[in-house]
Amino acid sequence: MIVDFSLIIDSIPKMLTGLSLTLQLLFVSAFLGTILAIILLLMRISGRWYLQWPAVVYIYIFRGTPILVQIFIIYHGLPQFEFIRTSIFWPILREPYGCAILALSLNTGAYVSEILRGGILGVPRGLHEAGSALGLSVRQRFIYITTPIAVRLAIPAYSNDIVSLMKATALASTITLLDMMGIARTIVADTFAPYEVFISLAVIYMILTLIIQKSFGWFERYMSRYLKKEA
């Protein structure tokens, strides 16, 4: 096989024009997904069955099905219903961008809520007892003791999820969005050169992954700064 370097040099800038869409999909869904995850988490640890149950079912459904299926159901499936096309949500659901954000947020929300729950379960029981011995209320213990420790414990898994989410944004190209993947697919369809184009694209995604990993590594060190002093 002869690698066509001029094609690589030509196609990388073209694919990078989709970078802003890829990053938008990543950041907006990560933000909305994390808010959703916190709500789901609070529902799960509320101790009230009518809050716990819906959260458990929701998380099970969204972790139990492929994200591509979720995207297709939201994009192709929902408009089959007349009431959705006449609803106030249609301006969002009409656009593939809205559908992609919705699907990615709902999906990542389910995963992140489990990650955060893992963090909370990892907080040693003794700290709770110490807190209550100091006269802190349940709410105060949750905010000042549980949360900071849980967040620190959850960071590695959370950064993993953000990397997964970043890669999942490529699926938005299946619903006509021209993110980096969508542009790459168009270039491939024009040039019949999948190797050059997709390998270049893979390198771009790997660089993004590296940036995400490094940022979270820094954040983790920042959150654990007091541990370092002890060491």
């Binding site: 192709h76 408009p79 089959q80 096309r85 009409r94 656009e95 593939p96 299946t174 006509t176 021209l178 969508g182 697919r185 168009t186």
Partner: peptide
């Protein structure tokens, strides 16, 4: 313009008003 990989998806989106 938006691009489709299958004509079915293209017709569905036309019908759905996308």
């Amino acid at each position: 313009v938006v691009f489709y990989d299958s004509s079915d998806a293209m017709y569905i989106d036309l019908v759905n008003g996308r």
